[in-house]
Each structure stands twice: as C-alpha cells, then as structure tokens.
Amino acid sequence: MSVSGLRKGGVTLTALGLIGLVVIYWLSFFWVSTEIRQGIVQRIFYVHVPAAWTTGLAFGIAALTSAMYLWLRDERLDRAAVSAAEGGMVFGAIMLTTGPLWGKIAWGTYWTWEPRLTLTLLLWFIFLGYFMVRSATDNPEKGKRFAAVVAIVGALDIPFIHLSVIWFRSLHPAPVVIKPEGPSLPGDMLTLLLASFAVFTVLFFGLFLLRYALETVRVELDARAREVAA
C-alpha cells in the first residue's frame, strides 16, 4: 500500500475511533447503570480493560512481527513491529495510570503487586528497552535486529513472569481485594465494555497505520539521504 493510502486509512480509522471514544464516554456517563458495590469508579473499567487488551494486542503484534522480521528480513515487518510497539507503550501507559486511579478507590491504595498490574509494568519496561536498543545503535540494521531479539525474549519470558507473580501473591496475600471480574456482568455494562473494546481496537489500528506510514516515509528519506551521500 502506498504511503498516502496508508495515511488515508489511518486518518479514517483514527477519526472513527475518536468519535467512538466520545460516544463511549457519553454512554458511560448517561446511559450505563452504576455498579452497586463499587459505585461510580467502576466506570474507569470502560477505558482500563480495553486499554489492557489493546496493550496486549500491540505487544503481541510487535513480538510476532519481530520474530518474522528475523526470519524473512522484510523491512515492512520491522516497520509494523516498531509501530505496534509504540502503540503498546501508549496504551500500556494508559492502562498503568488508569488502573491505580481505580485501585485507590476500590482497594484503598494506588499500587498493589497485583499479578496483571505487575506483568504490564514489566512488559512496559521490556519494550522501553526495545526502543532504547533501537536508538542506541549507529547502524539501523543492527538496531532492528537487536530490538527484535529483545521483543522475542520478552515474549518468551512473559509466561514465566505471569506464573511467578501469581506464585508470589499466593505466598503473600494482598490486602482485601474486590475482584473486578465476574462473568455475570449486567447486560448494559457488558454491551458498553464490548463497544469500548471495539472502539479501542479501531483506534489502535488507525494510529498504527499512521505510525507505519510515518516509519515508511522516514526509511525512504534515510535511504535517499544515503544515496545522496554516496
């Protein structure tokens, strides 16, 4: 796909996503019923949980495309990886900030070593390393390979981190925790949550396309600069 096509698609999806986000906000203020036990603060879930899903999706795409990049050496795979990883950083930051805002009311503390919270924090730092490695290499090809290795090892380590943080918690029970999940979510709450999932996913792919287009322009410009220099 051409850069202008990518950009057009990105702008369309992003605009759709932003409109969807406004609708979600409106619905969550005016339409959805309030959860009895947690009250108003439960509304944070309509952005927190979809942000968590998007973070996972983004880092998953980044790890997968990184592995495929090392295998096939197609430049487009690396562009997709870096675009998705950046999206994961943004949505991960959303998840890591909105989570404690909810936790302060529901748990009485901003931070607990709750397994999923810990896992996201570590994932975020693994991908911080991904970007630091990329920017700290003089040879861009080398940076791409190094970053891909970081993403793959990070992905392989995730099951171990997940198991270990759960293990740790079972040894040191956290203070009273109101479990957020419950499969029997009332109808309108479930509808809004699913709608929000869709909106965040659309928003992510819109932004992803924009970032991909940007990376494409940058790579082309770098190649041209190298030609001029040569």
Partner: peptide
C-alpha cells in the same frame, strides 16, 4: 470517585 473517573478518561484522550 468522580474525579478519578474524569482524570482516567482525560488520560486516555491526552495519551492518544
């Protein structure tokens, strides 16, 4: 709780 919800929703917009 309202403030926390508002801040959380604002964070999403600011980040995106």
């Amino acid at each position: 709780p309202y403030w926390h919800v508002f801040i959380a929703y604002a964070i999403v917009l600011v980040a995106v």
